[in-house]
Design a binder for these strands. Structure first.
Lengths: 359, 359
DNA sequence: TCGCCCTTGTTAAACGATTACGTTAAAATA
DNA sequence: TATTTTAACGTAATCGTTTAACAAGGGCGA
């Protein structure tokens, strides 16, 4: 495979240790285009950006040269000069969580529609604040134009500094009370309260919580919702009925086992997110218990197959997709300075899907 | 909010139309650091990159200046100079498909471990070749160092040109026969054959296929597997039993309806991916039919909750995560030229999970 | 003392675009 | 005809790094 055959002329100098790519992948520069079209580099640039009038004849010559050389402008050089990269970051908890993959898809679909041609760099923190910090640093080095963040907690000072400097930041799923940035959230407290109230209305009294150990505001609020609904119904519950596990299906499976080891056994479980629900169901299956006959389950976050399998899950549904779209729009407005005022907080609606798992 | 208060001195010139960020977000440059530390920019660079010995004393002064100014080096300028961006692209079909979100997570987890500190730009084609082309162009402009691609089909010439130039490219999930790049795949034909053979062994004779309309090699091979198993068992089937739908749950739901409208009704359905299985189950539920009593179902791609709900799904399991890890390693080896020989093709194993849905 | 190497540091040329400013020739006006 | 205006394009500075090439100073053997 004669890779060097693609080098069109001898104008290449030596190859440095790191610059070998240059040798192998020939890329015409704006100068090559200008030379071939017999114009200056400025004219080529203006043709590409439509930033100045160029006679039709000249424009065609430039376009022909671009096509002939298969020229693609160097986005890196462009970014350096313009101080804009056209790249945004998304730091989320875990892409394998359907809520977040929906969210990311919403972001992607939305930015694709923007004339700015934005790109998305994706980062999973797995709820680890240290990893979040590392990603923040890397993204800042990459000079992203803005960031959509589901904060893992911690790093408050860092984020405060960012927003103080005017860096475009949008929170999703959760927010940090001390950092005043745009956000798109749902009313976790109200939704969780309603869900647990529904369980109570179905006659359940001992309602446990399988809680993801996150410092996320969303989870805390959901747990508070449980307490609120219980209190409103005059029901007592001890702290032991709130079982924590890391936010993954495997960890939730262990958490579910712990709940099933509770004495006396609860008659319902409120799962604070997708992974908790799935882990709980696994634990239930393992013990040969049936839902809802032996134990009722209701969870936060719907999933697309929640009604395709048995038991159909009673859930609080929120649209990760819509929230992703909204976050992308907010961020774009900040980046382009369409929006410059104080922080905007969007609260998206939730739906209580009552299905058979809640008994 | 006095954003301008953060500008530390008057050394800033005018602000151009596009360069407003510079004004708002002050970022120290290597020159500022050098000035504060009383050394040259070269020395600062060498301290940061450990590319030459620097006396401990000088190094400490530089480090102190970096800390004091909260300096982060400009990755854009760095990339321009080094002709390396430390960014790779992943163009996949749909992040909401659990197979792909697992895959992306595998990529991410793997590149995080590399000393090169790579980043991932994510793109969803939704199986649209035109969108793929658009993303290819954008990523090339962004000067990514390499690409992991689940090709939507088409764009063959473009991709051929890329690999001919030596651009690091790794196929995942599917490949393009005319493009000789590294790949990590599974043996779709064998796995699908085994799955359908299992259905036949369970006594099913009229076995329909719910096929995602993709030009992907993976799907074609899975359909061929069905034909092979049927032929091996001496079973006939007409083309009408292969129903196509777009690769989404909603479309698969319609496809499932079409299958349930077949006369005579098949007694089993082979679903060629995750989304097909989910859509088929929805259709079954809608008609009030039960699985496996009224119709057996078996699908390609396992999902983490496949055994947590009823009916437990019989599936061919493949690890998107492992494939993502492998693809990331292959790509890294190409980028760093650790690997330079002919294309490497990795075939990952699959597992046949026999559960109750197949009857 | 001279020449040489070694150590540490500096200077300045890239990298490839964008864009403020300048220039040229033709057209318009006085 | 002399001058200004306008249309069309060119020149060169700039963005913030990396790194080859060079330089100064000190140590040391002959």
């Amino acid at each position: 495979m004669a890779v060097n055959a693609y080098v069109p002329d001898a104008s290449f100098g030596g190859t440095t240790a790191l610059g070998w790519l240059k040798w192998v992948i020939f890329m015409a520069t704006i100068r090559d285009v200008a030379a071939r079209a017999g114009v200056s580099v400025a004219t080529v640039s203006h043709v590409m950006n439509e930033s100045r009038f160029v006679t039709e004849d000249t424009k065609q010559r430039v376009l022909a040269a671009i096509a002939a050389l298969n020229y693609r402008r160097d986005g890196i050089a462009r970014s350096l000069r313009r101080s804009q990269t056209g790249t945004i970051g998304a730091i989320i908890a875990d892409i394998t969580n359907p809520f977040f993959s929906d969210l990311v898809k919403g972001i992607e679909d939305t930015i694709r529609g923007f004339p700015e041609k934005l790109n998305l760099i994706l980062c999973n923190t797995e709820e680890d604040a240290a990893r979040e910090l590392l990603y923040l640093d890397v993204l800042m080095e990459k000079r992203i134009d803005g960031l959509i963040l589901a904060p893992a907690g911690g790093n408050v000072a860092y984020l405060e500094a960012l927003v103080a400097r005017g860096f475009p930041l949008v929170f999703v799923d959760r927010s940090l009370s001390s950092v005043t940035a745009d956000s798109v959230l749902v009313d976790n407290l109200a939704a969780a309260t309603a869900l647990v109230a529904h369980l109570i209305a179905r006659g359940h009294r001992r309602i446990a919580v399988l809680k993801a150990t996150l410092h996320a505001s969303s989870i805390t609020e959901r747990v508070q919702g449980h307490a609120a609904a219980m209190a409103a119904a005059g029901l007592d519950f001890d702290a032991g009925m709130i079982v924590e596990s890391a936010s993954s299906i495997d960890a939730a499976f262990e958490g579910g086992r712990a709940i099933l080891a509770l004495d006396p056994l609860p008659d319902a479980v409120f799962c604070t997110n997708n992974f908790m629900t799935l882990g709980m169901m696994r634990a239930l299956n393992e013990q040969g218990l049936r839902c809802p006959q032996d134990m009722a389950i209701a969870g936060f976050d719907d999933f697309q197959w929640a009604d395709a399998f048995r038991p159909r899950m009673t859930t609080v549904a929120q649209s990760g997709y819509d929230q992703g779209c909204a976050a992308a729009r907010l961020l774009r407005d900040r980046i382009t300075k369409v929006q410059t005022g104080p922080a905007v907080h969007l609260v998206h609606g939730t739906a209580l899907n009552i299905r058979e798992s809640s008994g």
